[in-house]
Design a protein around this nucleic acid. Structure first.
Lengths: 344, 344
DNA sequence: CTGAAAGCGCTTACAG
DNA sequence: CTGAAAGCGCTTACAG
């Protein structure tokens, strides 16, 4: 049994009977080496269980082949967040495919700490996920580090960001529900400061107006929610339950699935039949929604495309490719499931 | 505006008018420096926006302060897996608190690639999550690297592993359901090769036997499932639906929540009333279950404790603490929700 | 095709 | 209390 000491290039070279330079060339795959020499080095690497030291390599090449991903969220479910989890999964897979490893960090206080950490780790690039404060991106910009934003909001025209086309998606939801015959809409809208929530709502109401439904009238009731989670879906539906029933709203639209699920659970628990009495529609297409009974109709967000392209674009940035798009939008489409179908 | 070039210790020292050694001492916090000197260096660091190079530091200290986490799963939902996601979230938080950053890797083919990668990155320690093949741990053991296993299975007495006490939990589920008056049990059991599924089932049936219910008789029907996901919950329930109804099983127990949710959805879609006609109980306590309508009764797994302790134990291992426990078990408790309550 | 030498940006004894 | 020097484990021109 070879001992557990980690061997370096020097021991490797020694055992193979070559110089460190030569050993380095065959291990790294850069530069020439005769077949016989190559064979000997590889053989030695095997018996020594040699693992090149990526830290040392990074120091000289000034490339770590590491990416940093920071998810900005105040509340605990971070990786396990149904939408961000999907995006991160995709980032992981796409990174692996391009030879990058990823440091995953979460940042609760929208601080600069995690950014600093990754800067010190000399990651090759940074993916900033979710809404983040302007100061974070102002900070990142001061350094010479490729970065991009996923699912955040910014007016900064310099910043590359990937978002789903929430306004169009909101419009499609309105279109679909209207097409199903609905004329009275109850809407629970997540935090207006959050780009996606505000655009989804804007798209939804604009489309209703175009369809001849005044969103100022009693045909549309919009309830704002300070948070976009399950608990608030329940809470707000509970608070407005009486109005909801009395006014005869036949369709419920929320700016994300979690709110929809919460509201739907409250309705189901009170015996309201979905979709027979009320049609419910969310946004995001989280896995949970497809598993619900009734399964939740929704508007999809292309988490797979976003995650994949984030890595691809960042890789291009790192490699110095220019003329990259500053804004990449992903199309949303309506996903019809049990919570809205069956309405005749 | 300071330019974007990244400055090194040399420039820092130069600007502060001290030697690199001194600059290093104040930046790293190791060693002495007079208040005035310290002040000057810090000042210079500020104006230069100096970020210590963690790569260089790691090379000399032989400590990266990085941890590697590998999640072994063949199927896509990895980070976004409802249970593993929770554990990973906790690992992230606990790592941060102890000054570690984490490389998150997934491994679909149970290969040695991700392990090698992390070995090359010279992480200080490794957390192996989920079921992994014996060859992976045999491989890791050959290197001089602290590691531990979470939620996996091993007979190797040397390996530190953290698991939930699945057998006891299975027994508690049986106890609870029996106490609710149920005498006919339908069980969907996940892959028997997976430690947690087989122990949950074993605990459940053993306890039933103790309660005087023969698990060989028609009182208990056990259906094995090759996968432990939602789709199989639906599929198996569908296949056995007629038997299920005809035989009058009043309780359904599955070895995880996903299976329970799938089976429950099928029952609900067919109009079976839960819990009035059938009580349903899962295992894991994933967030989804608490949101369902009816919310799912289950047996909890202490994901928070597991994630937190994994980092704590690994940190101790890294710091050379000895006499660590080889096996840490976490208690499970029954979580009663709508899918079983209401039965009188 | 291969090797000697310099250097990546730090830290750490060791002098003084 | 501070600085000069060596060295961590690699890669990369540059000779030969």
């Amino acid at each position: 049994m070879t001992n557990k000491t980690n061997h370096g290039l020097r021991e490797l070279a020694q055992l193979a009977g070559v110089s460190k330079s030569t050993a380095s060339r065959v291990i790294s795959g850069n530069g020439y080496a005769s077949p016989e020499v190559k064979e000997r080095v590889l053989q030695a690497a095997e018996t020594l269980r040699y693992k090149p030291n990526a830290v040392a390599r990074a120091m000289v090449t000034k490339r770590t082949n590491n990416l940093g991903v920071i998810v900005f969220r105040e509340q605990p479910p971070i990786v396990s967040h149904p939408l961000y989890g999907k995006i991160i999964d995709e980032i992981l897979v796409a990174s692996e495919a391009r030879g990058y490893s990823v440091f995953l960090k979460t940042d609760r206080e929208m601080s600069l700490r995690s950014t600093d950490f990754l800067l010190e780790q000399r990651v090759d690039g940074l993916i900033l996920v979710s809404r983040l404060q302007k100061n974070v991106i102002d900070y990142v910009k001061k350094f010479n580090l490729p970065y991009l934003m996923v699912n955040g909001s910014t007016d900064d025209p310099e910043v590359i960001h990937l978002v789903s086309n929430d306004e169009t998606g909101g419009g499609r939801a309105a279109d679909y529900l209207h097409g199903q015959g609905h004329r009275k809409f109850f809407v629970i809208a997540g935090p207006i400061e959050h780009r996606s929530h505000s655009l989804r709502l804007a798209g939804f109401t604009r489309r209703l107006e175009q369809l001849g439904i005044s969103t100022q009238s009693s045909a549309v009731k919009i309830v704002p929610s300070p948070e976009s989670n399950f608990a608030y879906g329940i809470k707000l539906m509970e608070e407005h339950y009486q109005v909801f029933i009395d006014q005869g709203y036949s369709a419920l639209f929320t700016t994300n699935d979690m709110l929809a699920l919460g509201a739907m659970k409250l309705l189901l628990d009170r015996g309201v039949r979905i979709p027979q009495e009320v049609a419910v529609m969310g946004y995001d297409d989280i896995e949970l929604g497809s598993m619900y009974s009734p399964s939740l109709s929704t508007v999809s967000v292309d988490a797979t495309g976003i995650g994949r392209d984030a890595v691809e674009l960042l890789d291009k940035l790192i490699r110095g490719v220019t003329d990259l798009p500053k804004l990449v939008e992903y199309n949303s489409h309506v996903v019809i499931r049990q919570s809205t179908e069956g309405k005749e």
